[in-house]
Design a protein around this nucleic acid. Structure first.
Lengths: 327, 327
DNA sequence: ATGAAAGCGCTAACAG
DNA sequence: CTGTTAGCGCTTTCAT
């Protein structure tokens, strides 16, 4: 910076002001500085700047899995909001278990992210409050109900309720919920299913599906083998549903005639012609954007009252659950 | 750090050694320090550490698009290698045009990443050498042929050649290549197609597909409307191929009877039962891992001679191009 | 717009 | 293992 100042014939402070784009600097001097920096190939050291300024202008995002499109949608929504505000995204991925999640959050805090976004399941045993050490935080998808932590999530109960109602409306009476892992989302989706079923006095049946394609495949195969096949399955997510479709095809079950299938997340493959899967759209990108907006607010004023935002999901009906839509 | 040292009754340097896990420290003192840090809720400031040590133990990865599974595979491969080596991943996404790519690289360099991985198309007009300013760099997928920059890529020409040969082996004579954007990858894939066709003295035909689902859909529809439909299409990537499949379904073309379709990338949806798309697997995760390994080598010794690694792709034959495989 | 002074929280090098 | 000295590259504050 001193070199640039010398080259431009100005003070070091002025260079700092120009590089940060703050304060009043005459166009003439600004040009002088920028050209000098260009000539010298000068790059501001963000590390040193952050250390001195005690803020990094970066926010950390913790996601469960890069391969799950829902998380990519979250990230896109987050970027929509933070990039215009001048913030960098720090991404921590593959937080599949408690250890890796802890390590991921630790590393974001270590990098001194100004705020943290948690888009992953938060195990009960995790002492999140201690881990965060006062860093402004917003969760996406789950609500850990911690002081000074905001939450944005979809109305999973409602989405699942609507999907179940849709299946009942198609004449189904024997509907199985293929469950995911023990997360708040799974609990809510299961509750919505149970609520819709009980409104029609229909018995509920839940089997485990593990939130994966193979899980969905296995769950359906097991019912098929034991002669307990329902006429419709509501799945924890699209991956599970696609596993169910795979099994159905292999077993020569016609969809939706012999078996109707509904997923959750409305990922891209759901819309593919050969898949054509009815699914609930959780509005993931909007969730990411809203969470980021809450976080920026909280960074600006950490004393803000806690907020929880709930976004309404949208049922997208396709051929896997409806006779009127081709297939 | 001074507080922790006081609390533990040791010197500040010892705390530094313990936190960095280097040098010889007796188990007794190490325990003392760790417990003191725990009690005080001390977190090492990575920013300050990086500034002082002149290295960040982080590597930057620039990817084209979070939603494209190939890039997620790259990232997984990279993480496989760098995490055990104690490096953090800094991710820069959405580098769709020259401006955002420049900004992405600038930000990684600004954060003083110890090395940079470029997994995105590099426009010719980009003065990469200047932008990188000596930062160790490895590219994935493309080879910009710049001094001191290594490259890892798949043999796109070979993959495309094999896929075309496969189609010819299935009896096809009229095969169209649905092209992607003007990248090295597209050029190579097109060349492999042309080579296989010319070996059989078959005429080549290339239409534009834009690397997207809608692009593939439109390309096929146009040929259909003009009565120029081939018996098989080889697509730049899976997205394009899935677009082609969508169009085929809409136009009541039977696949592979009326039209065979082959993609490139072997993404997850290709394996879905209703999609069942023949595709070339570029071994993306392995590419990411190899690129990361090269980068770590180059960080350790920047004077290393330039290297280019080429990975052999693998053709995965499914029902979209073969009568023997169901459908 | 400048100049001076202080400091962010750590690592590095070396003698003891 | 400790203590000392020096410094990483910047921001902040305040007086001028």
């Amino acid at each position: 910076m001193a070199d640039v100042a010398r080259e431009a014939g100005v003070s070091r402070q002025l260079v700092s002001l120009v590089m940060r784009d703050v304060g009043y600097v005459s166009d003439e001097k600004r040009g002088l500085v920028l050209r000098a920096a260009e000539r010298l190939g000068y790059r501001r050291n963000v590390l040193a700047a952050s250390l001195a300024a005690r803020r990094t202008n970066s926010i950390g995002l913790t996601i469960f899995d890069l391969h799950n499109q829902v998380y990519a949608d979250f990230a896109d929504g987050v970027l929509d909001v933070i990039q215009p505000a001048g913030f960098q995204l720090l991404l921590s991925t593959n937080n599949r278990d408690r250890e890796s999640l802890t390590a991921g959050i630790e590393s974001l805090i270590g990098l001194r992210a100004d705020g943290v976004l948690l888009a992953t399941h938060i195990p009960d045993q995790l002492d999140l409050a201690r881990l965060l050490a006062g860093t402004p935080t917003v969760t996406i998808g789950e609500d850990p109900r911690i002081d000074r932590v905001d939450a944005v999530h979809g109305d999973d109960r409602l989405g699942s309720y609507q999907a179940t109602k849709h299946l009942i409306g198609q004449g189904h009476r024997d509907i199985v919920y293929i469950a995911g892992p023990a997360t708040q989302q799974n609990t809510a989706r299961r509750a919505g299913y149970a609520e819709a079923m009980s409104e029609e006095s229909l018995p509920t049946r839940v089997v485990d599906g593990d939130a994966s394609e193979t899980g969905g495949e296995r769950a359906l195969l097991k019912m098929r083998r034991s002669g307990m096949l329902p006429t419709a399955v509501l799945c924890y997510n699209d991956s599970t549903a696609i596993g169910a479709l795979t099994c159905a095809q292999r077993e020569r079950l016609r969809v939706p005639h012999d078996l109707a299938v509904v997923g959750y997340d409305n990922t891209r493959p759901a819309a593919y012609p050969g898949v054509d899967l009815t699914s609930v759209d959780p509005q993931a990108r909007a969730m990411g954007a809203n969470a980021a907006a809450l976080l920026l607010d909280r960074i600006a004023d950490p004393t803000l009252a806690d907020q929880t935002l709930t976004l309404a999901p949208q049922l997208i009906i396709r051929g896997s659950s409806s006779f009127y839509r081709g297939r």
